[in-house]
């Protein structure tokens, strides 16, 4: 099959050049809408395809620091972090690595042995805590993440199926529906780019990415939702795109009508949270007493 320019099509009936331009255009639309060139941007980088791709886009647009979290997943994160460091050095991008072990005293591998919670619940709570706190300490005005269209369609569907409607207003290409100085607004430039498109883009641009799944990914509810959506997508192409576009179109109405929980400050660490103690402090308490 040929691209419209008569070159060989490599992905979605497009040649390398036209496919890459289409991805860059979708990401640029989100970036230009929500990020000012004067913003100080912190990018949450894992070293995977999504975060390296988003880092390559945003670093051309605004002053950027890559914030990397080493959760302590043996044989997985150590590999992706090494790729991340090379990527940043080649492009002169400043990066900071914060580890669960240094910050909390335990690696994720150790935490999963001690706690009964789902590994993704534990990891998510501590990652969110570090990202917001460190981004604020580094003086960020915007926190950019590599969430793609697949991640976001999974999040919308999971929250609907769990009847957690109060979380829906917080989703979208730019979060920060709750205004609070301690929350750094998050922007997701890959919101309208599918996971497969990101993988193809990273591959075609020679990013040193390990196409490897997190060893804990299979244990999550999210993994089943992911399989379900991909199964629907294989029968009904563009289903995920239509789903996420419909959600974004209705987001203003959702934000007006669905009440979000008020922000409190954790009684232990003073980080913003819902309830008396933040999830990270609740888990740490269990870790120290187990």
């Amino acid at each position: 099959m040929k691209c419209r320019c008569n070159q060989k099509a490599v992905f979605q009936k497009q040649c390398k050049k036209h496919f890459c331009l289409s991805v860059e255009k979708k990401a640029a639309a989100v970036i230009k809408k929500y990020v000012k060139p004067t913003d100080k941007v912190i990018v949450a980088v894992s070293g995977g395809k999504d975060s390296l791709t988003v880092l390559s886009f945003i670093s051309k647009y605004a002053k950027t620091i890559a914030l990397c979290i080493d959760e302590g997943i043996e044989g997985y994160r150590d590999v992706t972090l090494s790729g991340m460091a090379d990527f940043c050095k080649q492009r002169n991008i400043e990066y900071v690595i914060v580890s669960f072990k240094d910050e909390f005293g335990f690696t994720l591998d150790a935490m999963t042995n001690k706690l009964k919670e789902n590994p993704c619940t534990i990891c998510g709570a501590f990652r969110r805590y570090i990202l917001n706190k460190k981004a604020r300490e580094l003086g960020a005005t915007v926190l950019v993440t590599g969430h793609n269209m697949d991640d976001e369609s999974q999040a919308v569907l999971m929250n609907i199926m769990r009847h957690q409607l109060d979380i829906l207003p917080r989703l979208g290409p730019k979060t920060g529906v709750v205004k609070d100085d301690r929350f750094i607004p998050r922007v997701k430039p890959l919101y309208f780019v599918s996971e497969k498109e990101v993988a193809a883009y990273a591959f075609l641009n020679g990013f040193n990415v390990q196409y490897k799944e997190c060893p804990y990914a299979g244990s999550a509810y999210r993994a089943d939702v992911c399989d379900f959506l991909n199964s629907v997508e294989s029968t009904y192409p563009r289903a995920k795109k239509k789903f996420i576009e419909t959600f974004v179109k209705n987001l203003p109405v959702i934000r007006k009508t669905v009440k979000v929980k008020e922000v409190n400050y954790c009684r232990k660490c003073s980080e913003p949270c819902v309830g008396e103690y933040c999830k990270a402090c609740q888990l740490l308490e269990k870790l120290w007493t187990s």
């Binding site: 099959m1 995977g48 997985y76 996971e195 497969k196 196409y211 799944e213 997190c214 299979g218 999210r222």
Partner: peptide, 21 residues
């Protein structure tokens, strides 16, 4: 591309796009 034709003598790699991390 999905419609590229493979021969029995080819050697291919199948990369997962699902990172989940």
């Amino acid at each position: 591309a999905e419609d590229d034709v493979l021969k029995d003598t080819d050697s291919i790699k199948i990369l997962s796009v699902v990172s989940g991390g």
